[in-house]
Design a binder for these strands. Structure first.
Lengths: 208, 208, 208, 208
DNA sequence: TATGAATGAGCATTCATTCAT
DNA sequence: CATGAATGAATGCTCATTCAT
C-alpha cells in the first residue's frame, strides 16, 4: 500500500524534527545552552529560524527534548539483553568496550558536555535520572545480586558497587576529555584498557 | 613593623580581588558562565559593576582566574603530604573521606558544575589539566608505584589504575548530584561508604 | 428557480467572507490592529490562516474592509426613516435610546475601540467620515433646519449643534467605558438617562 | 548654595526621564502602542535603546508612565480655581475655550489617540479614571450643584449633566479629528464656536 | 580607584505572508 | 479554493563593556 498523503506529511515532519534535534544536540554541546543561538541551530539543521518554533515552543524546550531523546540508554541497555548468556568477564568486557568508545562515541561526549546544563536544572536532572541513571543502575544492581547469589561474586553492597563502577566509567570519560592526547589512556588500545579495568574490577569483587 | 600605607593599600586590593573571585565562583557555578551576569557577580561581591573591570579585563578572564584559583588541588594534595606515614588502607580512607564530602564540600560541586565550561574551552582545559589533573595523577601514580615496588600492591598499570580510581571518585560525585535524595549513597554514613569503596578497591589491587 | 451550482458557490464564498469579517471585527477590537494576529482571526473564523489571503490581500486590507463594512450607519440611519412622523421629543428619545445602548450594543464598542486605529490612518478616516460621519451629520442637520424653519427650534447654527449633540452621545459612550461600574450612568435605567439628556438638550441648563 | 554632585546627578536623570516620556508620548500616539518601537522612541528621545530600560522596566510600563504623567488634569483643573469669581457664562466660556484648543493642544490629541490603548487595558482605565475623569467630574458636579442651589441653574441630575457636557467636549474633539478640514467646526473662530455651544448648553434647542 | 549610567550589539521569539499539496 | 508548514524580517529586551565623575 502506498503511503497516504497524510502519512507522507507526518513522515516529513518526523524527519524535520529529527534534523532539528540532531542539530540542537550538536550546537548545545559545542557551545553550551546559553551560548548556543537559535540561529546557529537552524542553520545547522538546514531550516529557517522560525521553523524551530513550529516544532518546539522555546529554546529551553528544545534542550529538554534533546536530553529526553538522546539518552544513552538504548545502546547501553542492549548489552544487558544478553547478560544471561555471558559469564562475568564477557559481560564486563562488553560494558567497558561499549562505554570506552570515548573518542568516537560522540553521543556520550555530548551528554558529558551537557552535564553542566543538566545538573543546574531540576527538571533535566529528573529526566536524566529517570531515563538514564535509574534504568542502568537497576539492571546492573540486579546483575550483581544474581552473581553474588550464585556465589561468583563476594556478597557486596550492590548499591555502592554499582555506583562505584558506573562512576568509574563516567569519570574515565571525563578524564579522557580533560587530559586529551597527553593521557596515558590514549596510548593504549581500547582492548588493553578494557582488560586492565576488568582486571581491576574483577579482582575486587571476585570471591577468592 | 606596622604595614606601610602602600602595603595596606595592596592588602585591600587583594581582599577586594578575593571578594570578586569568591562571588564569581558562586555565580558561575550557580548559573553557568553565559547565564551569569556581571551585574550579579558585582552585587554578590558587594562592589560596583565597573569595579570588576579594574581587576579583570573581561568576564571571560574572570572565569579563567576563577578556574586558576579555585583548583581543588590544595586541599586534595594535602593528603599526600603525609602519605609516607600511612599504610594503604589509611591512605585510601583519607582520600575517600576527603572526596566523599560531596554534599557539604561546595568547592567540588562548583567545579563539577563548571566542568562543562572547562571542557568546552581548550585554554581552560589546559589550565585545569596542568593545575589539577596532572599533579593529582602524578602523585597518585608515584604512590601506587611505590606500593607495588614494596610488594603491597600487585604490579599494575598505574596510569590506568590511577585514572580509574580518580574517575571513580569523580563519577560518584556526579551520580550523587544526579540521583539526589533517592540515591542509596545518601542513605549510608560517609564512614560506611568509604569503607565499602575501600574494600572494593583494595581487594582488587591487593596482592593475594 | 433552484440556485445554480455557480450561485451556490458564490453564496458559500459570501458566507465565508462574512465569517472572516465578523471574526476580524471581534479580534481587532479586542486586541487592536497591531496586536491582533492573523492566526487568531483565522481560528475565530474557523478557517485556515492561508484562507484569509484568498479573501483579503493583507491584514491591513482586512481592517479596511472591516471598517467599511461595520459602519454603524445602518441601524442608526433607520431612525431617520420615520423622522417625518415624529415630533422632536420622540425623535430625540429614539436617537438617544438607540445610541444609549452602550453596554449591550457591541457594534458601537467595537468602533470606539477601533477609533485609535481609524484616527491614525488617513485612509480609514476618509472611509469612516464618508460612510458614517457625513451621512449622519447631514441628515441630522437637515432635520434641525426643518424644525427651525417650522419654528419648533430656535434658529441655530445647525453645523455646530449637530456636532455638539453627536459628540455628546459619542463622548457619553467613552465615559461609560472609562468609568465602568462606578459611573452614575450605570445606576439609572436607560429610560431615565435618555429622558434626562433630552431635557438637557431641549431646555438647556439655565433657569428661565 | 551650589547643587551637590548628588543633586546634579538626580537632576540629570529627571531630565532624561522627561525626555523619554515626551518621546514615548509622541511615538505612542503617532503609531499606537504595538506599532511603536522602542528603537523609535529611543531615537526620538536622543538616547540609546538600552537607556530606556534604565528608566522603565518594559515598553508597557513606559506606556503606563506616559498615561500617568500626561494627564490633562493640570491645565484643565486650573479653570476651576477661579470658578467662584465667574458667573456661569464666563465659566462655560473658559471651559470651552480651554478644551476647544483642539488643534494646537497636542496633549489632548495624544490622549484621544491613545484612548484605544487605554480602553483595552483595565490598569490604564483605572489610572485614567482616577487621575483624569474622576477629578474633573467631581469638580464639575459640585459646581453645578452650587449653581442649582443658588437658583441660577434648573434642578438637574448633576451626574448625568456633567457627563453629558464632558462627553460633548470630548466627542467634539473626536469629530474634529475625524472630519478634518471639511468640518464646519474648522470654518469658524474658536470664539464663535464656544459662544454657539454655550448658547446651546445654557438654553437648549427648544423655542421657548 | 570606585562608581553606575549610557551604550548598542546580539538574541529569542513572533507573525504576516507565501506556496506546494 | 482550502490548507498549514516554512519563511525570515522585525522587535523587545539583556548585558558586557566603557567612561565621565
Amino acid at each position: 500500500m502506498a503511503p497516504t498523503r497524510q502519512e507522507r506529511k507526518e513522515s516529513i515532519t518526523r524527519i524535520r524534527e529529527q534534523q532539528i534535534l540532531d542539530a540542537a544536540l550538536k550546537v548545545f554541546s559545542r557551545k553550551g545552552f546559553a551560548e548556543a543561538t537559535t540561529s546557529e541551530i537552524a542553520q545547522e539543521a538546514g531550516v529557517a529560524e522560525g521553523t524551530l518554533y513550529n516544532y518546539f515552543p522555546s529554546k529551553r524546550e528544545l534542550l529538554v527534548a534533546v536530553v529526553k531523546t538522546f539518552v544513552m540508554t538504548e545502546s547501553f541497555l542492549k548489552i544487558f539483553e544478553h547478560v544471561g548468556e555471558m559469564d562475568y568477564p564477557a559481560f564486563l568486557m562488553a560494558v567497558l568496550n561499549n562505554r570506552m568508545d570515548f573518542v568516537e562515541d560522540e553521543g556520550d561526549n555530548h551528554m558529558v558536555l551537557l552535564m553542566g546544563e543538566i545538573l543546574r536544572d531540576p527538571e533535566l536532572i529528573a529526566i536524566y535520572d529517570r531515563q538514564v541513571i535509574k534504568p542502568v543502575m537497576n539492571r546492573m544492581e540486579k546483575y550483581l545480586e544474581n552473581k553474588a547469589a550464585e556465589g561468583e561474586f563476594r556478597p557486596l553492597n550492590t548499591g555502592v558497587v554499582t555506583r562505584a563502577l558506573g562512576g568509574m566509567v563516567l569519570g574515565l570519560l571525563l578524564l579522557t576529555l580533560l587530559e586529551g592526547e597527553s593521557s596515558p589512556l590514549k596510548s593504549m588500545s581500547r582492548q588493553t584498557l578494557a582488560a586492565e579495568m576488568m582486571e581491576l574490577v574483577m579482582k575486587g569483587i571476585q570471591q577468592h
